[in-house]
Amino acid sequence: MNHILQEILNDQRFPEGSAWQRRVFSNKDMIVEEGQAGGSLFYIESGCLRVSGNIELESKKNIQPGIWELEQGEIFGEIALYQSQFRTASVCAISDVTLVEINGEKLSIYLDDNPQRGYLFYKGLFEILIGRLDRANHRVSDLFAWGLKVHGIKEHL
């Protein structure tokens, strides 16, 4: 994914300033917040980020556990690639970070106009999403097994 994304960012038909911009954040800066409207995709040039979600407990208390961490070369915000969407998680810097924020609508138009790069981009994105789905499935299985053990349900199966 990194190679094709670099090709796109270096293409003069996809200009910095209108199609994308470089942004710098400090440790503990909030990049995006869950529920916030967004229309951009982010590429991490350097640094580390934590992705977290908001969970409401029975007592109306909220916690925001970390879901996973993202590092240099990874992307996030792909849900807003085609249209403005509400962010499904919060992302916070856990080091100094340099990001490339890519306008989702302009990237979509560029990829339609450049089908070979579009194919390679979406192939890479598909591989990333499959990896994330696999990690999420393992976490759900682990949490389910933990819940069975904690509540003694396993003995009754």
Rank of each mutant, 00 (worst) to 15 (best):
Q21S: 04
Q21T: 08
G73M: 14
H151N: 13
C92G: 10
F14S: 00
A80W: 00
F121W: 00
L120D: 12
D112E: 11
G104Q: 00
G118H: 07
L70S: 13
G35L: 08
E56A: 08
N114K: 08
Y122P: 04
G131T: 09
R50M: 14
I63W: 07
Q83T: 10
Q72N: 10
Y110D: 01
L133Y: 13
S84Y: 00
Q85I: 04
P15T: 05
G53V: 15
E71F: 11
G39L: 06
P65K: 14
P15V: 07
Q36Y: 05
E101L: 09
V51N: 11
F86S: 14
L99I: 02
V150G: 10
R87E: 02
G66N: 14
S46D: 15
V150N: 10
K123M: 07
L120E: 15
I55N: 11
N103E: 03
A19N: 01
L49V: 15
L57I: 09
Y82L: 13
W68V: 15
H3Q: 15
F144W: 04
Y119R: 14
N27V: 03
G66W: 13
F144R: 13
S26H: 13
G73Q: 10
D134Q: 10
F121C: 01
F86P: 01
A80T: 00
R139K: 12
K61I: 12
D112Y: 01
V32F: 03
I8L: 03
T98D: 09
K61Y: 15
I4N: 03
I44E: 06
L111P: 01
E34F: 10
D134P: 05
K28W: 07
L125Y: 04
F42W: 07
H151C: 12
N10K: 07
R132A: 04
H138W: 14
V51Y: 02
I63R: 07
R23S: 13
E105C: 00
S18L: 11
G66S: 15
Y119T: 13
E56P: 08
E71H: 14
A93T: 04
D113L: 12
K106N: 00
A136W: 11
D96R: 00
L148P: 02
